[in-house]
Simulated scan of single mutants.
Amino acid sequence: MNVNMKGFVLLVLGIGLLHTASAVTHSLNYFYTASSEIPNFPEFVALSMVDGVQTVYYDSNSQRAVPKQDWMNKATETLPRYWETVTESFMGNQPNFKANIDIAKQRFNQSGGVHISQRMYGCEWNDETGATGGYFQDGYDGEDFLALDLKTKTWIAPKPQAVITKYKLDSDTAQNEYLKNYFTQECIEWLKKYLDYGKSTLMRTVRPSVSLLQKTPSSPVTCHATGFYPSGVMVFWQKERQDHHEDVEHGETLQNDDGTFQKSTHLTVTPEEWKKTQYQCVVQVTGIKEDIITVLTESEIKTNWNATNFVPIIGGVVALLVIVAVVVGVVIWKKKSKKGFVPASTSDTDSENSGRAAQQI
């Protein structure tokens, strides 16, 4: 990834600090990115993800939509010209994304240089409570630009430059009503279909490997959980079996190259303190009932000051950044047939497009 691109990467994955690993919550998300003047990077990229697993990928260089999971490919075998139709849709929408960057540059009084227009939208469903939710967000150059408030069915413009678009979209009450219906019903229906198609992968549970790591005797002690699936996890420290938050730093949940996840939590404590007081790392993973507990003792710590006992932390950070960098776009769907949706224009260009940009099965 070009160094200029990194400044605009919008990290959208993370986890809160509440107890219990959240997420019997499943998600279906679409990410679109339009860019200008980034060497060796496509001007337009689109992808979809189910429960954090990439399912479809398209970019303007290859001009071809491809499945990223075997189960996604098999699920579409019975649909004639499925991938050709999806490809045609993405190709048809590329001009709109390019036009939106040009309009945004005018509104922000910008000339040339690197610019990124982003769109991400999707829905989520909790398979225990039945609760659903949805979102639609636009970003420009790494900052919020426009968002849909599903409760009021109106648009939020964090930037003055987006107000003109807000008024335009607010006036289309039929479109906004449709979008609320899409996020709370249609999108959920497709999410459930995808979960069924990929259940052997998406609904599996993999127990993590947990290690206590330390660079030097005076460094923080890291509790590192890796290789777990799904991504819903809590990694936290306890002192004398009570939750301990002082001098604790929580890392992001990151994806490994094999599709599993990793997460670390760091505890700053002196050897004198943890040798006389019991500290333990607790890992809770969605789908695994029992907590995974590792007591902080000298024998449990793996270090790099003792080379024979060193275990490096290796993650799929680069792969994750590539996925997250592809966060954007400009496509929302109107139902056209049982096989897909037609994008409803939400761009400033008023251009019409009858192609399908992320056809659902």
Rank of each mutant, 00 (worst) to 15 (best):
residue 67 P to R: 06
residue 73 N to R: 11
residue 140 Y to Q: 09
residue 157 A to S: 06
residue 103 I to N: 09
residue 105 K to D: 14
residue 113 G to T: 10
residue 171 S to D: 13
residue 97 F to R: 05
residue 92 G to P: 01
residue 124 E to W: 08
residue 63 Q to N: 15
residue 165 T to S: 09
residue 91 M to W: 04
residue 95 P to F: 07
residue 163 V to P: 00
residue 167 Y to P: 00
residue 99 A to E: 15
residue 105 K to L: 14
residue 76 T to A: 14
residue 121 Y to S: 10
residue 144 D to H: 05
residue 137 Q to H: 06
residue 163 V to S: 02
residue 142 G to W: 02
residue 75 A to G: 08
residue 62 S to R: 14
residue 146 L to T: 03
residue 157 A to T: 02
residue 92 G to W: 00
residue 116 I to H: 09
residue 77 E to K: 11
residue 84 E to D: 15
residue 147 A to D: 08
residue 119 R to T: 07
residue 174 A to S: 09
residue 135 Y to E: 13
residue 153 K to L: 08
residue 80 P to G: 03
residue 123 C to V: 04
residue 87 T to G: 06
residue 67 P to T: 06
residue 74 K to N: 07
residue 107 R to P: 03
residue 132 T to P: 02
residue 84 E to C: 03
residue 174 A to I: 11
residue 117 S to E: 07
residue 142 G to K: 04
residue 126 N to P: 08
residue 133 G to A: 09
residue 172 D to W: 07
residue 155 W to H: 03
residue 68 K to W: 09
residue 148 L to D: 05
residue 108 F to E: 11
residue 166 K to S: 05
residue 134 G to P: 01
residue 99 A to L: 14
residue 121 Y to C: 06
residue 149 D to V: 03
residue 79 L to T: 13
residue 156 I to Q: 05
residue 92 G to K: 09
residue 165 T to E: 10
residue 71 W to T: 12
residue 71 W to M: 12
residue 146 L to N: 01
residue 132 T to N: 05
residue 146 L to S: 04
residue 86 V to A: 14
residue 76 T to H: 10
residue 79 L to P: 00
residue 121 Y to W: 10
residue 68 K to A: 12
residue 85 T to A: 10
residue 104 A to M: 14
residue 156 I to M: 02
residue 64 R to A: 11
residue 133 G to T: 03
residue 138 D to T: 00
residue 69 Q to G: 03
residue 156 I to A: 00
residue 167 Y to V: 04
residue 149 D to Q: 04
residue 114 V to D: 14
residue 121 Y to E: 11
residue 118 Q to D: 10
residue 120 M to R: 09
residue 162 A to C: 02
residue 75 A to I: 01
residue 109 N to D: 15
residue 103 I to S: 12
residue 75 A to K: 06
